[in-house]
Each structure stands twice: as structure tokens, then as C-alpha cells.
Simulated scan of single mutants.
Amino acid sequence: MRILVTGASGFIGRHLVPELLDAGHEVAAMTRRPESYTGGGEPVGADVARPETLAPALAGCDVAYFLIHSLDRRDFVKRDAAAARAFGAAAEQAGVRRIVYLSGLGDETETLSAHLRSRHEVEGLLAGGGVPVTTLRAGVVIGDLSTSWEIIRQVVAHLPALVAPTWATARTQPIAVDDVVRYLVGVLDVEASIGQTLEIGGSEVLRYTDLLTRLSALQGRVALQVFVPVPSVRLAALAAAQVLPLLAGVDRRTVRALVESLPYEVVVHDDRIRSMVPFEPMDYDDAARAALRQRALRLGAAA
């Protein structure tokens, strides 16, 4: 198949493209700057913010992966909605048979954060063009250069105590980036996944604070946990947006959007994908070790 991967130079895209090529697919790697793209596949220039550029990128493609978001922008909800509408319509006009979208876990019966609500809204807007969408919903993705993981790693590396609001003990089901990619590639061969919303996660359900303490233990550190009575999610997000970028080099708006999602449980309740793409996902410790190895290799190569 010929497959378009949007966000090919992003965190997930950089892992996905080589696996699609290894599986024998022809890959068009969509990027706003094709002249500087160094990854696999055929670079194609397009921008979801400029809908007129999408038709040439999608031409001849059987499947398109939508891996784009705008969390670093103040108006990310509006931007992501417009991008999804434009991409869904362009995919239909190009004759694309399926869109695969990586979304976020979250119980729709709750009042979710703006970040999670936006991810779910994009699912419907992509499908509004008429092309069937396979949606994979994931929580925290563990891997080198994942924004969520980098925040966790830097907090453990630099803060003498692990400070968390008393309400930041919601459950999450972290998943290794390699396992995310196995699911993203695997659904291509499963006709039953077409038009479905599927949930993916690692082998363990943990609290957010567990992610910090267990990483500390893996690195031989004794983690002192301090819970503080921060009454407001918004207040905690604003404070984190000021402090964490100094550690992690992450955009403040991205940090704020992610922290605002902390009180919400993001775990798998529907595990149908386990029978569609059968394998045993990594546990958190193995995923964390793999991410640390990836980082060491990247820094070693850059030295």
C-alpha cells in the first residue's frame, strides 16, 4: 500500500515510518519542510493549515495516518478542529480508503480537560469527510523525546522531592512507543478495525505519582513524595507551566495542557485490540528502560 504519514518528523512519526517501510509499504512522509527531512520514505510537502496543499500529498494513497496536534498554540482546539475537517475532506476527495488517528484515552462520561476533549473531537471531524477512521486512544506514551515522558524524566532527575497535588493520583496506563507503533502498523491488516475506536495501553495501570517513584527506583534514587493541597487544576497547571519548561525545555502551553489532564483517569476499558493485534505490551519499568537507552544512544550519536 501507499501510505501517507502526517507529522513524519514528529515523535510518533519518526518511529512509525521505518516500521511501515519494513512491512513492505510505500511511505509518503508529509512535512512542512521536505527539503530538510532526513527520515525514511518519500518526503512530500504539505501543511494541514493550508488545505490547498493536501491534495498532492494524498494523491494515490490508500491509507493516511493523522499524527498532528497544536498543543503549543493558545488556540489549539480551534486549530486542530480546522485541520481535521480539512484533512478528512481532502482524504475523501483523493480516494483514500482509511485514516488512522492516534487519539487520547479518557472517559467521555466525564468532563474532560480541553486537551482530551480536543483529541476526541478530532476523531469525529476526521470521519466527517466520509473516509472510515481507525482511532487508537492511548494515554502516556513512554519513549525518548515524548513530551510527557521528558517531563517525568526531568522531574525525577532534577527535583529533590517529587511534589504533586493531592488530586494527582488518578490512574493511567502508560504504553511504550514501540508498542504504540506495533498497534498502529498492526491494524492495517485487520479489516475489523476499520471505522472503530480502539483503546491501547501497556500491561500496568498505575498512578501518575507511581511513574515518578518507579523511575526514581530504576535509577537508584530514593524518591521523597510530597503531596501539596493545591485546590485548583488550573492553578497547578499555571504553576507547572512556569517551572517545568525550565527543566524539560517544553513549551509552556504544552505543559499546561498536559497537566490539566492529570485528574482524569486514562485507562483501557475496551481491550478488543488485544485480539486484533495480539502481543504482550511492555510493563512500565521495561518501557522506561527502553526510553533511557534510546536517549543515551541519541546523545551518544550527537556527541
Rank of each mutant, 00 (worst) to 15 (best):
G129T: 00
E123W: 05
V77H: 15
Q93R: 15
T135A: 11
T135N: 11
V155I: 15
V155P: 10
R79N: 13
A89W: 02
I151L: 14
G139T: 07
A82D: 14
E92P: 02
D80I: 03
G124E: 07
A84F: 09
G95N: 09
E123C: 09
L67V: 00
G143H: 01
F76L: 05
V96T: 12
A127W: 02
Q154S: 11
A138G: 10
V156L: 09
G143K: 06
R117P: 06
L105K: 03
D80L: 05
H158M: 12
V100Y: 09
A89L: 13
V100R: 11
T134W: 07
T147E: 13
R153Y: 09
R79M: 14
A94T: 01
S148D: 04
L126Y: 05
E121V: 10
R98S: 05
S148K: 09
Q93F: 02
H120R: 13
G88N: 12
A138C: 11
T111H: 13
T134I: 03
E110K: 04
R119I: 03
I68Y: 00
V155C: 14
H158E: 15
R73D: 09
V155K: 13
V155D: 06
Q93M: 06
L105S: 03
T111R: 15
H69F: 00
S146E: 01
R74N: 08
L126T: 04
V141K: 05
A86D: 05
